[in-house]
Amino acid sequence: MQAATVQSLNIDSTQTDIMIWANKYKGKSRTEYLRDANEFFYFMHGRRIDEISKTEIETINENGKRTRLLNKHVEKYKQYLKERNSDSSIRRKIYGIRSLYKFLRINGYDVDHMIFETSTLKKKTKGYGFYSPVEVKRLATEALKERDGEELSTLILLAATTSLRLNALLGLEWLNIIKHEESGLYLVNTIDKGDQEATRPFEQDLFDKLFLIRNRTGSDKLFPNLKPDKVEKSIIRLNERLGLNPIRKLRFHSLRKAAIKYEMRTTGNLRRAKDQGGHNSAQVLLEDYTEAEDDYASRAGILMMKTIDESVFDSVGKEELLCMIKEINYGVYQQLAYRIQKRRFE
């Protein structure tokens, strides 16, 4: 028994540690992060993952003398990447290496993951657009015409409802779902990007759709026939068939944004928007989910000082009033209907 313990300790190595880190990720992300680590180590040390030592990771050879790896070395690597990579690729590569070094620091390596806090990570490019709630439903309906359309349609609805990323959704199994008795809703619990635990609610009708898929496939996975590339290509085809403008850059990730954008537009409640998307920073929400306002007359500082003449409401009927609310903000219309319905049961 003692020999077995010694043997198990002897297999621990830098390569083992790196693979433990990499195995936290799944599928394409894992492959990309390992490739990025190889590229970084080869640039800095002339070594691959299966060759690198702990000492080499902690230091760098400069003019025949070993010194700590510093931010200036990362900046030099970033300049090298700029010659052959897009800004988005550079951000991904730097983020991945930062994640690795943070893991190594936690596990006893004398490294500092903060040296990877470069301007590359902070630079923003225009991201994907948003689907409106109506467009989400149209997309899900049109998806039924695709191969494995039942799964794709249900995946689209679950993505918009939970704001989970594609890889997290495709990795879901039935053991990830529980019934929340107090609310009558179902909860999906999984690990999303950045190793963050994510719990999101969804309703009975969506559960029923998932259950039909399970009865048909007999699989423990929620979406056994769907792969990331297949889903992304299907979304592009669906956008074309629905006549959605390609300038909007609508992709599967746009489904994740739908409910977050809805929350920001209807209530502006940052805490609830953060909970919906699993964001750690409110700044991300302010930058990515709010828009520049050119209508100065509608600014909060102007509107809040105005005295409202409520008699104007006497001049319009119910149908006209509801129509105007829909035109101004369909989300507010839905929220109003929900609150009225809720009051009836209180």
Rank of each mutant, 00 (worst) to 15 (best):
A300N: 13
G278I: 04
V111S: 06
I115Q: 02
S315E: 15
L157E: 15
S163T: 11
K209A: 07
E146I: 12
N10I: 13
T14A: 06
D110R: 13
E56W: 02
R343W: 08
Q335L: 08
G301H: 15
I106R: 15
G243N: 00
L144T: 15
M324Y: 10
K227H: 15
R48A: 04
L185H: 07
L155H: 06
G46T: 02
I18Q: 00
V6S: 09
M19P: 04
A3M: 12
I52N: 03
S132D: 03
L144H: 07
Q2M: 13
R344G: 13
G129K: 06
L169E: 04
E319D: 11
T120D: 12
Y131M: 11
E232L: 11
I49R: 02
Y101L: 08
D288I: 10
E58C: 08
K145H: 06
A282M: 15
S311E: 14
S86Q: 13
E117L: 15
Y330I: 07
K227E: 14
P228E: 09
I302C: 02
K227V: 07
Q2G: 12
K137H: 08
I235V: 11
P246R: 02
N269A: 01
N280C: 06
G27A: 03
T190N: 06
L321K: 12
N61C: 07
G171Y: 03
Y33T: 00
Y289A: 03
P228W: 04
F41C: 01
S88I: 11
A22V: 04
G194I: 05
F345I: 14
I213H: 04
T161Q: 07
Y77A: 03
W174L: 04
Y42D: 08
K24T: 10
N329Y: 00
R92D: 03
N176K: 04
Q196L: 14
G46P: 00
T31N: 13
Q283S: 13
S183I: 06
K193L: 06
A3S: 14
T199V: 11
Y95E: 15
I11M: 14
K82Y: 06
Q7I: 12
E197N: 13
N189T: 15
Y109V: 07
L187P: 01
K93N: 10
S315T: 14
W21L: 02
Q7H: 12
L169T: 05
S88G: 08
K261C: 10
R241C: 00
V136E: 09
L9F: 12
N38Q: 09
G194Q: 07
S132I: 06
S132M: 07
F116T: 07
N61K: 11
F103A: 10
I60Y: 05
D275S: 06
E151N: 07
K221I: 04
L100R: 04
L121Q: 11
S234V: 11
G268H: 00
S234W: 05
I302K: 09
R30Q: 13
D309T: 00
D36L: 03
E287T: 09
F345D: 14
Y77E: 01
I340N: 08
I11A: 09
A159R: 02
V316R: 09
M114L: 15
L226N: 09
S8W: 10
S298M: 13
T162L: 01
N329R: 00
L166F: 06
S88V: 15
T31G: 08
C323E: 14
Y338D: 12
